[in-house]
Design a protein around this nucleic acid. Structure first.
Lengths: 358, 358
DNA sequence: TTGTAGGCGTTATCAA
DNA sequence: TTGATAACGCCTACAA
């Protein structure tokens, strides 16, 4: 199509960069150098080139440039689905940062480990400069990733299981997460805590809470074994588990830590139904910083995953791998951030909070 | 990098397609034709080529192919944000369908009309084969889109305002939406309906409900002017408006239509607080088929936007525009689908529904 | 520092 | 149909 546009304007062999070079009265090489920033003087030549480029609305043909330089300015991102809140949040941080670097995001999704593997292969074949993978919940993609052309292009796994130490990993710091949650709860006078953990089929955000039941820092607060449950990160599960845990009116938790905001919402529904006031009688904290937690009534305190840090680190690793040669795989976990809301605030909730607009 | 890989294997000038051609004992031209499906015989030659390609793990260098053919196999998608449920749902339908066609999705997001315009320009400069744009709520991008190289590459706008008839548009059929909602409500004995419409700052899904207040089919059910409100599509708004509408215990609606699931949830919260039973005393229907509506207790009947149809149509238009020359811009609206749930079902809700797992 | 010229891997053209 | 050959537009040795 481009060629059509050109030929319609003139019949001469007018390669874009050639036109710019002609107008600026320099060689195409100089144009290339100036425009790619490889010539940093700001003299007359540079100005002439830039002016010519602007006048002609020139922008380099990316296919030609990729072909010659083996750099596509393209980053592959493999996610379970954009509907997944974790993936969506991360993507929303990744894309602008990548664009600042002149990189485009090639988005691809796979709902199974196999599909994700195919995405990875396909994107590598497409020639992406780097690959960021968010595995589907429960799957261990690290083997697949390690098998891919890890030596040719940089790959970063975000969150999820990672059994292969050969793969770059960026994620949420689970121990910090739990510590933040517990500290926040105890700061607000929570003493006997119910903990709804993710199960084995845990999702990305829930990951954070797994595998540290034995941390000495926390066991003190989770006395009652039946107050720690494992399961899906759903509203339904939060509802069911909460009803069960609060069956005995004599012996109830006064605080609940949830591995996801959905669980927290389900739990709140159950408490509401039981006529138990939040935060007066029970404090509750979720995880994931979902829109729902913010909008719920009362609003739910939550732990915000370090989306921004993860996105930055992933991009940093990719850039780094491209320049330097063969760094060791890196493995970095960032702590979440407490978003304080009504569900753990000092007492008193009421309609008055919500009645006034905005 | 590729060249490095090659040279490490051998020092001869082994262009990928050349290797395949050599192994299959045909010319590179033939390899190209067979592999690109432009030669549909399945004779010995074709088989030899395919075998050779597979043996060598060959896949065409997309940069070279794009450079020569001016086809990048790349589709630009501009969305407000992947966090936006509408965009996420659509993207999740678009990507697999595009991949079936061998197209990759270049995802780009802009939170303002200006940013989205930049995304469009940038993607066009990048050489995408087509562009799909979901405008941010309230913005009218059709001018910007019309100004873009619409004659060079096909652009489709999905949902949102479209004042320029020169732009391809695909979206939700608002009149059908309202009719579906009302029919469903009246089928379930709703007689006096409260309607929480989107405001001027309406979002994509809400669009559907705007601009047909005067439809004679519906005015009959919306007697009370104060029972039709305009505003944000938020939980908060649904909560507030509902409290207000139900102030007078003598004269209350027995059904509520909401322009979004969030509104419906807020409304349910308010009703719960007022001790009004859903669906026994009030039927309620939302819009958007959000996860929240499905998980809420009781689950909320909702209208599912025609994501699949919209995605398919958008891709069809793009393919069509590429082949044929200069069709007239198309403008297609699809009706939503009712997802029946408890909030409009026959009476009786109770804990029993939820108590049993799954 | 600038210009010249060759090649990146593929597909389109054209002749056989 | 197939094969030889010439672009596609850019970048980068290399020479000046």
């Amino acid at each position: 199509m481009k060629s059509r546009a050109r030929t319609s304007r003139s019949d001469s062999p007018n390669n874009s960069i050639t036109e710019v070079a002609a107008l600026a009265e320099v060689s195409t090489a100089t144009v290339s150098r100036v425009l790619s920033g490889r010539r940093n003087k700001d003299d007359d030549i540079a100005r002439r080139v830039r002016d010519a480029a602007e006048k002609l609305h020139y922008s380099a043909n990316s296919a030609a440039s990729s072909l010659r330089s083996d750099i596509t300015n393209t980053l592959g991102v493999v996610i379970p689905s954009p509907i997944d809140a974790f993936s969506a949040q991360l993507l929303s941080k990744l894309e602008p940062k990548a664009r600042e670097d002149g990189k485009y995001i090639l988005a691809s999704m796979g709902e199974t480990a196999k599909e994700q593997g195919e995405c990875i292969d396909s994107l590598i074949a497409r020639g992406v400069d780097g690959l960021i993978v968010i595995p589907i919940p429960g799957a261990d993609l690290s083997e697949i990733i390690a098998d891919s052309a890890t030596d040719k292009i940089p790959i970063v796994q975000i969150s999820g299981r990672n059994t292969s130490s050969k793969v770059n990993w960026v994620g949420i710091d689970g121990v910090s997460s739990m510590r933040e949650a517990i500290t926040h709860i105890t700061d607000h006078n929570g003493t006997s805590i119910m903990f709804m953990s993710a199960g084995l089929d845990n999702d990305a955000t829930a990951d954070a809470f797994v595998a540290f039941q034995n941390s000495s820092q926390i066991t003190g607060y989770l006395h009652e074994p039946e107050w720690t449950t494992f399961g899906e990160c759903t509203i339904q599960r939060g509802y069911n588990d909460t009803l069960k845990a609060f069956e005995d009116a004599e012996d109830r938790p006064n605080a609940i830590i949830c591995s996801s905001d959905d669980i927290a919402v389900g739990s709140m529904m159950a408490l509401q139904q039981l006529g138990i006031a939040v935060p007066n009688e029970v404090k509750i904290i979720g995880f994931g910083d979902s829109q729902l937690a913010a909008a719920y009534h009362p609003s739910i305190t939550t732990l915000r995953p370090p989306y921004e840090s993860m996105a930055e680190e992933a991009l940093r690793l990719i850039k780094l791998k491209r320049s330097g040669r063969h760094h060791l795989p890196s493995h970095t976990a960032f702590p979440p951030q407490v978003i304080r809301r009504e569900s753990t605030s000092s007492p008193r909730i009421g309609t008055s909070d919500m009645a006034d607009p905005r």
